[in-house]
């Protein structure tokens, strides 16, 4: 996207989650997306076996944010040998919760007429950033002050050629909202908020060399009452800024 325009939420490229050789010819690659507030698992399913596949179904193990299929996996026609089909599975966040390691890990079971197969994948936590995540400015200041220093995590993003406005626009496309911007001694400091689907708020401070997109390092500080999410949030923030 061009500088100054919102660019939409970041969607990672599809990767192979279940190789055919581990699943009697069934190959699944996929990614996760948030489109207009709806979380989706987007799948490419290929039949690399010599017989027809049918009767597909999917189930998730309990996971950190209660992700669960919001409906059945819709593959309405049998899949012939060498045939590929794209499927979109809308997800809800009201399923059973169990803390996973890493936090964004998802264990999946897929069944067809041949057998049941299992795989793990990791979702970008940014798909859980909700559209109403812009915190009130007064609440932000109070919350920032209130969260103890031990719950602050610091990170660095290297080789990021964005000025603060471009960074702010890009992040807003993924529901990371800028609340205030200040320039201090040649550095732009962006104060930002994120709200996860389970109601956890993350506060961010981004430092960018003012007016200098060739400067390549960004400093990120994250404050959260549930600091175990900070690492995952940072990974998503970095992916959004670099893509």
């Amino acid at each position: 996207g061009s500088v100054g325009m919102p660019t939409g939420a970041y969607i990672p490229p599809k990767t192979v989650w279940l190789p055919a050789m581990k699943a009697k010819g069934l190959e699944i690659s996929g990614t996760f997306a948030r489109r207009a507030g709806v979380i989706q698992m987007e799948l490419t399913i290929t039949n690399k076996a010599m017989s027809v596949m049918s009767d597909f179904a999917i189930q998730f193990n309990r996971n950190s944010f209660g992700l669960a299929p919001a409906g059945p996996l819709q593959i309405l026609t049998p899949l012939g040998p060498n045939q590929t089909i794209e499927a979109s599975l809308p997800l809800s966040t009201v399923g059973p919760v169990m803390k996973m390691e890493p936090l964004n890990n998802l264990q999946v079971a897929v069944k067809n007429n041949i057998d049941v197969f299992y795989f793990s994948c990791q979702y970008p936590i940014s798909m859980l950033f909700v559209e109403d995540g812009k915190m009130d400015r007064q609440v932000f200041l109070a919350t920032w002050k209130d969260i103890p220093n031990e719950h602050e995590s610091q990170f660095q993003i290297k080789d990021c050629h964005l000025n603060s406005d471009a960074a702010s626009n890009k992040l807003q496309g993924s529901n990371i909202f800028t609340i205030a911007k200040r320039t201090v001694e040649g550095q732009d400091m962006l104060y930002q908020s994120i709200k996860l689907t389970n109601g956890i708020w993350v506060l961010a401070e981004l430092r960018v060399q003012a007016g200098n997109p060739t400067y390549t390092d960004l400093e990120v500080s994250l404050k959260c009452r549930a600091p175990e999410v900070s690492q995952c949030v940072f990974q998503s923030l970095e992916a959004v800024l670099k893509n």
């Binding site: 400015r137 007064q138 200041l141 200040r182 201090v184 550095q187 400091m189 104060y191």
Partner: peptide, 20 residues
């Protein structure tokens, strides 16, 4: 008036973060 206060508070926050 409240807006001015908040603007100022963010400036103070940024300053304090830069010179702890």
């Amino acid at each position: 008036e409240l807006e001015d206060g908040l603007d100022e508070a963010f400036s103070r926050l940024a300053e304090s973060r830069n010179n702890p």
